[in-house]
Design a protein around this nucleic acid. Structure first.
Lengths: 186, 186
DNA sequence: TGGTTATACGGTATTGATACCGTATACGAT
DNA sequence: ATCGTATACGGTATCAATACCGTATAACCA
């Protein structure tokens, strides 16, 4: 076995960020960080469906199509999403993916997962708030998010208002720049 | 060569995030994302000192000691730092490191680098665009940004429209979620 | 058991964002 | 010299966002 390959494999395994490889949403390989982040032993995780790593079947279905178009075009995609630890505790992650099969993006995916620290200590987001936030980060309007979730646009506006209050921000733009990491630009 | 190792090596190389391995600040291995992020061919990068990847010798010296203590204690460290692309353009990164040699952290380091600005590097933004983006991330309206910069609100709207076109996003919320990367734990 | 919060929805009023139309100057590249 | 882009500004039209008013149910907690 050549040294090059061995070095890369070791770097993958010891990487300071969670990484995983999937084929059609089944985990084919992951590193130690990934398994630790989700509270599993790697041996118990390999070969499993990603379903068990999401909070619900609905969430699992929801995230499937998100980013498919971006991956068909650019080969890569990133967003923020909620994962589910083995003990049930949700983990909010910066998710990045690159596909090796652009024609069928999910066929061979390489992913990285970086846990996001919540802005408010202890103030975790509700399921609805995360769903709405997901739509907002994709640039959807309240009307569009309502359609996606089967709710009235008015309800989405309520959730938005609650998010703005919780994070003490003036509008959605400031909210999204706080949810991710925004530096001053000068 | 076993399949396990081969899979991990491939995942390392095709990872959607820049990764590198160093021995005493000399690059021993990196993946495609890392080389691309910094504008090099991997072949020209391996074996080089990290010095060439920082904006100045002073910065190279400064970052050496940062995080040494954290790595001796936890084995890992992360911050945001400026890297220097081959063409001289600075790139802001979320930097993460794990050492495999806690007694002498720099002896064997595994690192990941995520550009804080994703789709487009910050250098491609004009001064005006950065000024306006700064206001937007603080939740200011076009009118308020105009006051701050001594410009007409209409001009701010022009800059916003240009930003939306450049990044191919639907609105300011999506823009800000693309411009910034997640704030990680630690 | 009452208080708080999340959820869900309706109306209305105001402000903001975005997309067009237009003009004009400046600057760098081909 | 002309093309493209950034800058800067004006008007108008339309849709979205936000802030209020209200009601109602369900969950949880002290």
């Amino acid at each position: 076995m050549d040294d090059f390959t061995r070095k890369m494999a070791q770097a993958f395994d010891a990487a300071p960020i969670g990484m995983a490889v999937s084929h059609h949403r089944v985990l084919d390989m992951c590193n130690t960080s990934f398994a630790e982040m989700l509270g599993y032993d790697r041996a118990n995780l390999l070969g499993q469906s990603f379903r068990i790593l999401y909070p619900s079947h609905a969430e699992f279905d929801r995230v499937r199509d998100i980013g498919l178009k971006a991956m068909e075009e650019n080969g890569s995609y990133s967003d923020e999403r909620m994962m589910r630890r083995k003990d049930g505790v949700p983990v909010w992650c910066r998710f990045r993916a690159r596909t090796l099969t652009p024609d069928d993006p999910l066929a061979h995916l390489i992913m990285s997962f970086a846990p996001i620290r919540d802005q408010l200590d202890g103030a975790q987001l509700t399921k609805r708030e995360r769903e709405v936030l997901s739509g907002l980060s994709r640039g959807l309007t309240s009307k569009e998010i309502g359609r996606e979730l089967g709710l009235s646009p008015r309800t989405i506006e309520d959730v938005r208002a609650r998010l703005l209050r919780k994070f003490e921000v003036k509008n959605t733009s400031e909210l999204l720049s706080r949810m991710s990491y925004a530096r001053p630009t000068n």
